[in-house]
Design a binder for these strands. Structure first.
Lengths: 189, 189
DNA sequence: GGGTGCATGTAATGGGTTACATGATTCT
DNA sequence: AGAATCATGTAACCCATTACATGCACCC
């Protein structure tokens, strides 16, 4: 059995397990849920929901509203739930690496050391901020969603972020030190 | 000043600082250089080289060969070098996160624990293997390229990989333990 | 009067992979 | 005999972002 539609459609199915939602709702929910490791734009969400409805994986209901445009609320069907489960079981497809910071650092010898230092510093600050965000989310989740059977999985993804960001902050510090050493050596002659 | 062409063209310019190369050469060199954090396909490389030549950032020379097709060897021009430096100075553009493993783990409650365990295990093994590869490359680099002014930068990118992979292996182990705990708790009732 | 939020959607554009097409040589 | 290596390139396709288009209501 082949599963077309790729990860985007399945991400939407996953989010719709939480509650029936419109495309607008979904977009708004992402930063509070899978936002740390996944993103979707309206340009993907609306057409994808349409396709999911056409293939019977979600059901569409229109709610009329006064003043505001109609809301198109989508809810998961049994077929949709089954499709999601099938997709979850498939092995994770390896992602092609593309890390612009490392590319620039790799060629860092062609510009001044200050350039690399700035890139690394910005990167470090990003991850320091991320660490704070993760801590805040974990705290909130443990309070608000205590007992939810999904909570352990959510905490695992948060833990991933913490491990990674902590390691990358450490790397950043070491790298900044190494850049300073290079500078000293360059001046010494 | 705007720089079009994006990261791909600049990655090619960067690689061409090492030596003049054909598209084929470049593709072959990637796994031994920037392969851990960057990838390019022929479908990108050949058209990009063409465009770089049209805009005067690289120079094309054709070497005829017997039996084999002509080699089109590209070398960096002064303009190309300047362009690369300009690009290196630009802030790193933040990449949109897309991490399929975490997406699947986030929705892990919808399938059996074994599914998540398998995904995490595969991920862990990937990074354990990566750690060995990084160590081997670092050793080789320190021997073969001792004294090269670019060496420190190359080691920094390798160090990045080591820090990250080590952290992710640690996370994997903890997560597998957490999954085991969940299993025990589920059985206890 | 103007920004922000609600709410939908499409079109243009960019960026990328994969498959296809070609063809001689060399290794197994 | 058949696979792998050398070597180039294009076309079809997929996926995704951004900008555009619409329009009311509410708040300052």
């Amino acid at each position: 059995m082949k599963i077309e539609g790729g990860a985007t459609q399945n991400a939407l199915l996953g989010l719709l397990t939480m509650k029936p939602m419109s495309g607008y709702d979904i977009k708004a929910l992402i930063p509070q849920s899978i936002g740390n490791f996944w993103s979707e734009s309206y340009g993907q969400i609306y057409p994808s929901l349409k396709r999911l409805a056409e293939t019977g994986l979600v059901e569409k209901k229109t709610q009329r509203q006064k003043g505001k445009p109609d809301r198109h609320v989508y809810s998961l069907t049994e077929d949709g739930r089954a499709r999601l489960r099938d997709w979850l079981k498939l092995p994770v497809v390896a992602e092609v690496p593309r890390h612009e910071l490392l590319l620039k650092l790799f060629f860092g010898a062609h510009v001044s050391l200050g350039v690399s230092r700035e890139h690394v510093t910005a990167f470090m600050e990003e991850h320091e901020k991320a660490l704070k965000v993760y801590a805040a989310i974990a705290k909130r989740l443990r309070k608000e969603d205590a007992g939810d059977p999904q909570l352990p999985f959510w905490l695992m993804t948060l833990s991933f972020g913490r491990h990674r960001s902590a390691a990358l902050v450490k790397w950043s510090r070491e790298t900044l030190k190494a850049l300073d050493e290079l500078e000293k050596n360059a001046k010494r002659r």
